[in-house]
């Protein structure tokens, strides 16, 4: 599919914008963490759309965000267990 552009996003209603971004991010995150892809994508979708668009363009910023999400999840799970 053609790359998602800011103008395409702006044309979509807000709820669809998150779904659109999610469906682009999901496969990229799935390649990194298959079992946590849905959860991580959900966490990243709370970031504002402009940063999400940037992450779609630059894999390294996506990777660092995904690592951050993993760390936050693990810290959260540890807290829940203890």
């Amino acid at each position: 599919p053609e790359p998602l552009t800011a103008s395409m996003l702006a044309a979509a209603p807000l709820m669809d914008q998150k779904q659109l971004l999610g469906e682009r991010l999901y496969p990229m995150i799935h390649a990194l963490h298959p079992n946590l892809a849905g959860k991580i994508t959900g966490m990243l979708l709370e970031i504002d759309n402009s940063e999400l668009l940037h992450m779609l363009e630059s894999p390294e910023s996506l990777h660092s965000k995904v690592d951050e999400a993993i760390a936050v999840l693990q810290a959260h799970q540890v807290k829940e267990c203890s």
Binding site: G22, T41, M43, L44, L45, E46, I47, Q77
Partner: peptide
Amino acid sequence: RKSTLNPNANEFKPRFNAQPK
């Protein structure tokens, strides 16, 4: 800086089965 990511964010459900390329 405090991470702004929310561990309680609800899971994203891809509408179509977003197969990784």
